[in-house]
Nucleic acid binder design. Structure first.
Length: 450
DNA sequence: TCCGCTGACACGTTTGAATCGC
DNA sequence: AGCGATTCAAACGTGTCAGCGG
């Protein structure tokens, strides 16, 4: 299916760059936080990407979803993030389709693609189509470039996935790290009024504080402002973590977090930036492409998604495959150094536990064709029109349901949610967790709200 | 008591309609 | 009448804060 087009086009040529990567990096260095509210809050920095390598006359759908970065809920304690406990069950809807979708490749390539209007919410019953997240959890956006088979019915044809390490963030209802607050105020025009030269320095106003608690908190913040890049910022291990006996932090603690202002343990960001992936060992035919944080990257891997034939002996294909070439590694989705992931989870998985990565290897013959109808009563053209996808697509319906003619059969997946954190984490062994097909099934088409 | 969440608030930017001048 | 520039107000986005509840 990766046949070259008449003009020599190959799906693997699609490239995606994060336009405002420097800004993202400056936030990432401190530990990006994103406010989520009941009514929805925009991201800042917002996701702004540029695309190249698309076929100018072919329509594409661009979408973004929020992926749980790890399996933990965090808490802010003494100027750093600590693991609190296990992650809460995943919220239902985490996908946002760019308003211009579907549009010609020429449209996507002529200017950067902004996800400015994407909003995040913690309201699980949200009806506005915002992306629902849990506070105090870490996420990262993952972008999909999809080539629908039909402009009216999103029967997914080729698609590729991209993510950017520096866009990982912690969802919060109130900013925890004052440095993030300052960065936001400094860079977000809407928060201009809170800049030091602004007029809206409420904290400096004579506003009577009736709550001693708030005084205390403010004092803590003030002291934090003075606080300068503590050398030993590490992700602390909570009692909960230790009690579970799942966290092995040795690898973290021997990392060098010195001189780094991040409220996360250094190896995290370090790995993200310095050497995000074991690129050399990776199969460049994998689907998801981890786009490194610096500007002019080539995607590490480049391949269009193809679901394997149900009859193909995937397991056999992968038998004994221990190298990254065997799987379509999804390293991209998880920071290699993901310090929050207990080593034990990675390394102590039951060896016999079959993972989708084994079950669904990339097959040249099979396409992802979940036969997903465009949301809404009518078939809008131009189609998906800019709204986050709601629950029109159930994995079971779309995937398994069409399995007959659609060259696809759904694997036995966690029933509750395809991205069950535990499962997710479980797939991380060896820094990769399944191939693109796996991901396509798991996250793209599986939301209960679809 | 602590922590996370919510809603009100003030202030800024953005957007689009109304107005004006050419 | 048509077009572009300007003005203005409403809508929207933002961080802060007090208060609430678990």
């Amino acid at each position: 299916m990766t046949q070259a087009g008449p003009d020599g086009y190959q799906p693997g040529n699609i490239r995606m760059n994060l336009e405002n990567s420097d800004l993202w990096k400056s936030f990432h260095d401190v530990g990006t936080e994103m406010i989520i509210t009941k009514h929805g809050r925009r991201m800042f920095p917002h996701c702004n990407i540029s695309l190249s390598g698309l076929q100018p006359n072919v329509k594409y759908v661009i979408m973004v979803e929020m992926i749980l970065a790890d399996n933990f809920r965090y808490k802010w304690n003494r100027e750093q993030w600590e693991v609190g406990c296990k992650a809460e069950p995943l919220p239902p809807c985490r996908t946002y389709v760019h308003p211009d979708s579907p549009a010609l490749g020429s449209h996507w390539m002529k200017q950067s693609v902004s996800f400015l209007k994407l909003k995040l919410t913690n309201h699980t019953l949200d009806q506005h189509g915002h992306i629902i997240l849990h506070s105090m959890h870490r996420y990262y956006p993952r972008f999909h470039v999809i080539q629908p088979d039909s402009p009216y019915t999103v029967r997914w044809g080729n698609f590729q996935t991209f993510s950017f390490p520096e866009t990982t963030f912690t969802a919060v209802t109130t900013y925890q790290n004052l440095k993030i607050t300052k960065l936001k105020i400094d860079h977000n025009p809407f928060a201009k009024g809170f800049r030091e030269d602004g007029t809206n320095m409420r904290s400096k106003r004579c506003r009577t504080t009736k709550s001693p608690k708030k005084d205390k908190k403010r004092a803590k913040y003030d002291s934090e402002v003075e606080y300068k890049s503590p050398p030993g910022l590490q992700r602390a291990v909570s009692d909960c973590e230790q009690a579970e006996g799942k966290l092995t932090l040795g690898a973290e603690e021997d990392g060098s977090s010195k001189g780094h202002g991040s409220a996360w343990f250094m190896p995290h960001s370090q790995s993200l930036h310095a050497e995000p992936l074991d690129v050399h060992g990776l199969d460049h035919s994998a689907e998801e492409q981890m786009v490194p944080s610096s500007m002019s990257y080539q995607p590490y891997r480049s391949v269009d998604y193809r679901l394997p034939s149900p009859s193909s002996s995937v397991a056999e294909d992968c038998k004994g495959c221990q190298s990254y070439e065997c799987h379509a590694p999804d390293v991209a989705t998880v920071p290699r150094d993901d310090t929050t992931r207990p080593v034990s989870i990675r390394e102590h998985r039951p060896p016999t536990q079959a993972t989708p990565s084994h079950d669904y290897r990339v097959s040249p013959e099979y396409r992802v064709s979940p036969s997903v109808d465009v949301p809404g009563p009518s078939k809008p053209s131009p189609g998906l029109l800019g709204y986050p996808h709601y629950g029109h697509y159930l994995t079971d319906q779309t995937m398994a349901g069409q399995g007959h003619g659609a060259q696809y059969r759904r694997p036995s997946l966690p029933h509750h949610h395809p991205l069950n954190p535990a499962e997710h984490a479980g797939h991380q062994h060896g820094y990769h967790h399944g191939n693109s097909a796996e991901w396509s099934q798991y996250s793209l088409f599986s939301y209960a709200c679809w």
